[in-house]
Amino acid sequence: MVGASSSDDKISNLDLGNPLHLQTSDFNSNTIISVKLTGTENYRVWVAAMKLAINTRNKTGFLDGTCLKSTYANSAPLSNQWERCNSIVLSWLLNSVSEELFLGQIFSDNASEVWAELKETYDKLDGSITFNLLQKIHNFKQGELTVSEYYHKLNSLWREFDIMTKLPKCSCAAREDVSKHNQLIKLMQFLMGLNDVFQPIRSSLLARETLPDVKDAFAIISREESHRGIASSSSGSVTKPQVSSFVAKSNSWNNNGNKKFDNNKRVGNSTNNRGPNPNLHCTNCGKVGHTVDRCFDIIGYPPGYNKNTGPKSNGPRTFNANSVSSSSEKGASLSFTNEQMIKLMNLINEAPLGNV
């Protein structure tokens, strides 16, 4: 019991700066990053996230091999604590890789060896990887994303590309020029991927004498998106344009004194049917009830109309609402084509008032 108490004392005396120190949250973390390693294509993103997460827990020595078990060989409690820490770090690694990679490393017992093997296997850079990433950046569009979602996802791709093609550090005058060039490329890529609804503000930004950097452009367009959203919500539901059938705008037949042509009512309504006007005479066919400008023999008969049937008044039926509607008494369903209706209304509106 004395030995056990002594061991507990040694473990509890470990400060936060000691790599063997464990916090309660370390035991509850099945995974410490949201990215799962799938292979070469996302290794750099995964390794950057994993390094950051491991470092915040002061366990980097278990990854790079600088924290060795042999260092604590003279103390059984600390040696056991090293085993515990190594197992926890190993579980963090295995829980952050895909199922295929997990099965390949499950029998490993040293976190630094797994780390080194993953690096050797997947930290490879060739032209195809660079090509695929650059193609993804050029083809990336806003689509259904908000401006903020679009920008941050595109920014993530830029960061990955920058890490993959990292330039050597320099302090020469050309460094600022290179930085400005990269900003220009990113600005153009960001603007090109925006939806067409932002075309006016995009043109306004490009017309500036001094182009903004990509962060300023994002802020400006994000405010525009917010403004559009407020305007849309304040105006309520937007009424979509509807395709309507031909509706007469005239309030009457003007020249023949017959049935008024009310809006949203079809020609042929039998209400107030007063029959043909006997005061009208056609100089073309010699019949009464209509004038030459409305003679069916000249302008054509409406679809379904039989000139040999229906009531006559010393000649063919008059070209007015009443003559067309009278055929409905015999069960015929008559209608005008849009072209005929337009022609009819033009004739009515152009007829001289003297014919009334």
Results as ranks from 00 to 15, higher is better:
M1F: 14
V2L: 15
G3E: 14
S7H: 13
D8V: 13
S12D: 12
S12P: 09
L14K: 07
L14I: 01
D15V: 09
L16K: 15
P19I: 13
P19H: 11
L22S: 09
D26G: 05
T31L: 05
S34W: 08
V35I: 14
V35D: 07
K36T: 06
N42V: 12
A48H: 15
M50A: 06
R57K: 15
K59P: 08
G61I: 07
T66L: 06
C67R: 01
K69D: 05
S70Y: 05
L78A: 05
W82A: 03
R84I: 08
R84F: 03
S91C: 11
S96Q: 02
S98A: 10
E100V: 10
G104T: 08
G104N: 09
Q105H: 13
N110A: 06
W115E: 07
A116Y: 01
E117R: 04
E117Y: 01
L118P: 05
K119I: 01
Y122E: 01
L134Q: 14
Q135P: 01
Q135G: 02
H138K: 02
F140E: 07
K141Y: 06
K141A: 07
Q142E: 12
E149C: 04
Y150G: 08
Y150R: 06
H152F: 15
H152I: 05
L154R: 15
S156D: 15
W158Q: 02
R159F: 12
E160M: 13
I163P: 00
I163H: 08
M164R: 13
L167G: 03
C170W: 01
S171C: 04
R175V: 10
E176K: 08
D177C: 04
V178C: 02
N182Q: 12
L184S: 12
Q189C: 10
Q189I: 09
N195L: 08
D196N: 13
F198Q: 03
Q199N: 13
P200Q: 00
P200W: 03
R202S: 07
R202A: 04
L205W: 11
E209C: 02
V214H: 11
F218D: 03
I220P: 02
I221H: 01
R228P: 00
I230C: 04
S233K: 13
K240S: 07
P241M: 08
Q242E: 12
F246Y: 11
A248E: 07
S250C: 09
W253C: 15
N255W: 15
N256L: 12
F261R: 09
K265V: 15
K265H: 06
N269M: 04
N269P: 00
T271C: 10
P276R: 12
N279L: 10
L280D: 08
C282K: 05
C285Y: 09
C285E: 11
K287R: 07
G289V: 03
T291S: 05
F296D: 11
D297Y: 10
Y305E: 06
N306S: 11
G310C: 03
G310W: 05
S313L: 10
P316R: 10
P316M: 12
T318V: 02
S326K: 02
S328C: 05
E329F: 09
S333N: 07
T337N: 00
E350G: 00
P352A: 02
N355D: 10
V356Y: 07
